[in-house]
Write a protein that binds this DNA or RNA. Structure first.
Lengths: 157, 157
DNA sequence: GTAAGTGCAAAACCTTTGCACGTCG
DNA sequence: CGACGTGCAAAGGTTTTGCACTTAC
């Protein structure tokens, strides 16, 4: 049943290798381990999660290397950074389609749901333009309670 | 020319006094100084800014008191918290009209512009409902470059 | 060979918290 | 008086950084 997963396809690192080469950087063992780890995690994860995964591939990966590699992963489009104002940032493997996405965050369990919201992109650009500003990025975040958390916690008397 | 400002009207603290009394808390000298300071600052400010202003009114106000008072100011509707993912949070005296506002943030100088975006509120609620979640709050943030920063920094070769 | 990269540990940074003392009601 | 509030300073927790050693190219 398990059809060949894309996770272990070595050629997937091509774009990333090209990105770092073009910047005059080096494809070190640790860097590539972080890259592979980042691609292998599904859903949102923290820097600490990534460290664990990367260490499973290469024991020598340190926390500093994770934090130094993350901007490269983001810059190369491998990973997206998701900051929902929690104590730590989240990261997410970038899907193929680059549709603009909003984040639905459950206040009870911190679960994050990515939601396509193409209209937001248009709206954000319009707002920036109206103020004479050149738009760079936009972010819509909806805090809510998921079904499970609605039942678990009474909304307070 | 200077028409009587609302800043020094003592009765403006009424709502805040009622809020803390209703919670069984006390209207201490320091707490009220922080309140007055918060109302006197126009535009966005940090906790540190607030500390300076409050100390100008009452030298005994400490940083801890600022951080302990801020949730009360927010809870009473005196102040709005604005978190745009920078190193520190910003605060803003709550205006009368409670229209939903988006934040336009200049990436170059960190200036924040509040923009009315009532449609966003509706949109956020709809997104949450579509996923069976009960909406609590939403936040739209547009990162951009203001005119001055567009000229100052070349977009990098 | 040499400049970039790495691990380690300490630093940085805003914010929170423990404690003993003050003070509002 | 007694609980709530305060100042001080130290702790917290993620991310960054300085330094000497490695390593990719």
């Amino acid at each position: 049943m398990t059809k060949p997963s894309a996770t272990d396809s070595p050629e997937h690192s091509g774009a990333f290798r090209a990105f770092i080469a073009q910047k005059g950087l080096r494809a070190t063992r640790q860097r590539m381990a972080v890259f592979e780890a980042a691609k292998s995690i599904s859903g949102h994860y923290t820097a600490e999660d990534l460290l664990r995964k990367a260490r499973a591939l290469d024991r020598t990966v340190s926390r500093a290397t994770i934090y130094r590699a993350l901007p490269l992963l983001v810059g190369s489009g491998t990973v997206r950074e998701v900051d929902v104002g929690r104590d730590h940032k989240y990261y997410l493997a970038e899907a193929g389609g680059n549709a603009f996405q909003a984040q639905l965050v459950c206040e009870g369990c911190d679960t994050i749901v990515e939601v396509d919201a193409p209209f937001m992109e248009w709206y954000g650009k319009a707002v920036a333009a109206k103020h004479g500003m050149r738009p760079i990025s936009q972010k819509l975040q909806v805090t809510a309670l998921c079904e499970r958390c609605q039942k678990r916690r009474a909304p307070r008397p």
